[in-house]
Design a protein around this nucleic acid. Sequence first.
DNA 1: TTAACTGTACTGACCGGTCAGTACAGCCGA
DNA 2: TCGGCTGTACTGACCGGTCAGTACAGTTAA
Lengths: 179, 179
Amino acid sequence: MALAERTNNRARILDAARRIVEQRGTAHLTIEAVAAEAALSKGGVIYHYGSKRALLAALRDAALEDLSARYAEQPADTSALAAWLRAHRASTAAPPALGAAMLANAAEDPEMLDPLRRFVRARLDDVVAEAADPDLARLMFLAVLGLRFDEMFGLVGFRSEELTRLEARLEAFAEALGT
Amino acid sequence: MALAERTNNRARILDAARRIVEQRGTAHLTIEAVAAEAALSKGGVIYHYGSKRALLAALRDAALEDLSARYAEQPADTSALAAWLRAHRASTAAPPALGAAMLANAAEDPEMLDPLRRFVRARLDDVVAEAADPDLARLMFLAVLGLRFDEMFGLVGFRSEELTRLEARLEAFAEALGT
DNA sequence: TTAACTGTACTGACCGGTCAGTACAGCCGA
DNA sequence: TCGGCTGTACTGACCGGTCAGTACAGTTAA
């Protein structure tokens, strides 16, 4: 195996875990299954993450940091609601998937969702603080969350064309809601 | 044990499963844990549901039938969006909790969510069909979903007073959206 | 009598975690 | 420049334990 592949094994393990959750469900997320999916041994996975719980926490933190970074990288003049929407849109496409991380962490111990809860509450506060109509802003914030969860469970499964229209509509609300 | 308690044991088992998922996570949802929570033996749980998978499916079906019944029981002149909102409001408070059922079924096998997916898509179709502004209707539909998922993961955790205001706002949208 | 259990005793599969050992790149002092 | 040493990244065998499911004899209440 080439060096580049070998040094990226930590990330590859997380990506393997994500695929297992999405395709088979968290009940089948075992260290052995992750190892097989990432094409290494069980010992190799343990070597990198120490324990299953630590692996789960790493999966959560990677997803949260990704979302957080995408939120922070929005231009300073972006409204909080538009930033919230765009951060989700940007992080939904690429791994690490927040949905898989939430499912896996909630399955192991609901308290492991705490860092995520803090992040979501802080973002809602941002959105509400700058909105002319706070309740409408909360509803739009929830619509973005609904979009995310819908994708997570494959409920409606909007077509990309519908998604684009819905996101444009949310952008319009974000603009109209600015103080 | 009195008759009423004994004949309701099938429902009590489902309720016990729900509490375990909510408090400890689906990874700790074992037949023995359910039996202990429902104050029954492991054999008793197996006697009623046959297998863990069947228990999970029963949990899902009970939650879905509850939501479906509450949707259907709305007066005929209620808009689909208002019915969607009210069905969720009515079924969120009482067991069987859809959230726990979704988590547990998705953990075991993501395909077990299929009946739920069909229901959600049918409800969205209802809402879109009668809306003067279909995309706005979709957004409001998603906001209701967002509210449900938010509760499921305890993300924002809105206060009941905020919830009441948000629901009133959604009702207002439902009325304005009618064709 | 029968439905609805309980309790006990298993089986076989699987799971998380440990451990000894391997491979190998790179450093470092003589 | 070469032998010894270190750190990183694993592998594969294994252990103690848990889990779903089976089997079955006995109990209890209507």
